[in-house]
Amino acid sequence: MTLDETSAVREVHKSSLQRPSRGYRVFQVFNAIALTGVVVATLYPIVNIVARSFSTDHYIRAGQVHLLPRGFTLTTYKALMHDSMFWTNYRNTIVYTVVGTVIALFLTTCYAYVLSKKDLRGRKFLIGVAVFTMFFSGGLIPNYILINSLGMKNTIWAIVLPNAISVFNLLVMKAFFESLPSDLEEAASIDGLSTYGILLRIVLPLSKAVMATMVLFYAVSFWNSWFSAFLYLNRSELFPVTVYLRNLIFGATSGTSVGFDRADSVTAAASLQSVAIVLITLPILAVYPFVQRYFVSGVMLGAVKG
């Protein structure tokens, strides 16, 4: 075989390797169709909810609102925007979310870092205590009595402290810390850093992905929480916005919505739930793009080890 023939055979072989097989092309087509269906199924409810929030009651009840508003109206939004209690409760939600996320992240990080040390005495017991709470709890009435006896009723602490540590988040962060090279900590210890110095100057800078993931998990949890506030708070000026909107929807069904006169309440009743969903999810949707790049990597890295 001549040199030219050899080169030609190599080119043909190379092109055959680069050309995707028929089965792979079929897979790509089905994959594209499946992902398109997932995107449509995910986006349609969101677009529909936004359209319903700007539509009048008549078209919503008739089932004529799909992707675009029908009978465009801002009645519900205007009533909420002019209600001072709405803004008070919205501010409460922001405060509860920020304070609760900071406390939860601090406690979870400290606990997870301790559990990641395999030579720690009593490590299995501490892990068992945490895992036990995933399956068993004290119950609603004992928890209420405990919160009341501690004097935390009608305070922010009744919202942020009982939910300060999520065991799932704890185990994810523990697994992430265990995946970090131990040589880094040993070298830092030889250089004279204390345990807290190693955590602050070595471990946390390497844990941005999992930290961002935990912030997102905790922030969403506190932002959407309403039952704890409904249970432990009796004063409306302390309610988070989720409880306000829950009461608003409940009042709309009986024609006595907060911030609405009787006529407006009947007109806006069918769109109240949509407006509530839009107002609750909007801040989370605004924050998510900034932490999205850390989200998947943080969960995957934390799931490397069990």
Rank of each mutant, 00 (worst) to 15 (best):
M300V: 15
P283M: 12
Y96T: 04
S265G: 13
P205C: 11
L74K: 01
F260T: 07
L150C: 07
M300E: 10
K124A: 14
E11F: 12
S21Y: 09
A158R: 02
P69V: 08
K14Q: 03
N31K: 03
Y144D: 00
K174D: 00
S7E: 15
N224P: 12
T133D: 03
S257M: 13
L68T: 11
M152R: 02
Y244S: 00
T76W: 01
R201F: 03
T109E: 02
D261E: 06
I190D: 00
G138Y: 12
S297H: 01
A276R: 02
F30R: 07
A158T: 08
V131H: 07
L43K: 03
L80N: 05
W87Q: 07
E5S: 13
I33S: 11
I94T: 14
P69Y: 09
G306L: 02
S53V: 04
K117F: 06
V299P: 01
L233P: 14
L200P: 05
F260K: 11
A104L: 01
L193Q: 11
R19S: 14
I277Y: 07
I284N: 02
P205K: 07
L216N: 06
S274V: 05
L238M: 13
V129C: 15
A187R: 00
T133V: 08
E185A: 09
F227S: 04
A252P: 09
M134Y: 07
I190N: 02
A188S: 12
P283S: 11
N92T: 04
R52Y: 01
P283Q: 12
V278T: 08
S221L: 04
M300Q: 10
Y44L: 10
Y218H: 08
F72L: 13
I127D: 09
K14N: 02
D119G: 10
T109S: 14
Y24S: 11
A268R: 05
S55W: 07
L43M: 10
E185H: 05
F177I: 09
I103Y: 08
A276K: 06
F290M: 12
S166N: 13
L180G: 04
L238R: 03
F54M: 12
T155W: 02
N48W: 09
Q273V: 14
Y90K: 02
L200D: 04
N224F: 11
V220T: 06
Y59D: 15
G259H: 02
Y244A: 06
G37Y: 05
T56K: 15
M81I: 12
K117S: 15
A270I: 08
A286P: 08
G23Q: 10
I141P: 03
I147F: 13
Y111G: 08
P162R: 05
F136M: 08
I60S: 12
F106A: 13
Q18D: 11
M300L: 15
T56W: 06
F30T: 03
V167I: 13
G37D: 01
